[in-house]
Write a protein that binds this DNA or RNA. Sequence first.
DNA 1: TATAACCCTATCGGTTTACTAGGTTTTAAG
DNA 2: CTTAAAACCTAGTAAACCGATAGGGTTATA
Lengths: 138, 138
Amino acid sequence: MLSKKTKYGIKALAYIARKKDRKPVQASEISESENISQKFLESIMLELRKSGFLGSKKGKGGGYYLIKEPNEIRMTAVIRVLEGPIAMVPCVSLNYYEKCDDCPDENTCSVHKLMIQVRDASLNVLGENTLEDIAISQ
Amino acid sequence: MLSKKTKYGIKALAYIARKKDRKPVQASEISESENISQKFLESIMLELRKSGFLGSKKGKGGGYYLIKEPNEIRMTAVIRVLEGPIAMVPCVSLNYYEKCDDCPDENTCSVHKLMIQVRDASLNVLGENTLEDIAISQ
DNA sequence: TATAACCCTATCGGTTTACTAGGTTTTAAG
DNA sequence: CTTAAAACCTAGTAAACCGATAGGGTTATA
């Protein structure tokens, strides 16, 4: 299950991407328009800035703006930053690999092979979709 | 992320499916062989029995056995029972649908369409794979 | 009748989640 | 220069969930 944090983060990015001009967008505006708790959203925006998706401008008239073009931002990247691994099991995760305590041999594990297939299927979808693709859907 | 419960449940089912004879398999045997806490496994087996995947035989020489043939048990069904929804967001879940609090209109939600794609990709993999398929991989 | 096995309920420590509170700092506008 | 708007930062917290454990009860077989 996707956390609210990730969901809100994606929505916020999509909101910013939909704006034609590249003027900074206030968190308060997004929070109202998308029905997201403002303080919670602030912390998410901060995380998105620190991880290189957003830039920010302080003070009156400030806000957040995209650093890259929407079509350069793959959804895999966004989800990995906000949510963590895309795989359903650490032992098949490409970016967050971890061995299972049980399971002496991954090659003979019945869960392992199945979850690799699921991971690849998800990765395929999330890697094909960019912020531009999902922002259009408005 | 898949819970341990689901992972153990799948492993246990696969273990039983690998046995050629259809004699009941003890939870203790599975727990040892698959390195799963026995008490925890017991509760999982119980759940699998109540949801119609397993039958049980009490007393000495008892254990659990598959009710259907392995090739009739789709992984979607197993995961839905143990883990719950396969979708990453309730608003795209087929079996556990729930409306989002935020989000006045699903059709214009940027997350919604993306998550439908992910769901369908996962559903495809998990629906194609049966217990027979994953049990072989031993 | 002893014992192996399933059956059931409760509890618990730890972690995560979603959010709230309460400020500080920076900047633009008047 | 003052004020207000905005990002920034730290901390805390209630609730839920997770993985496991405890401690038996019940049933059937040898």
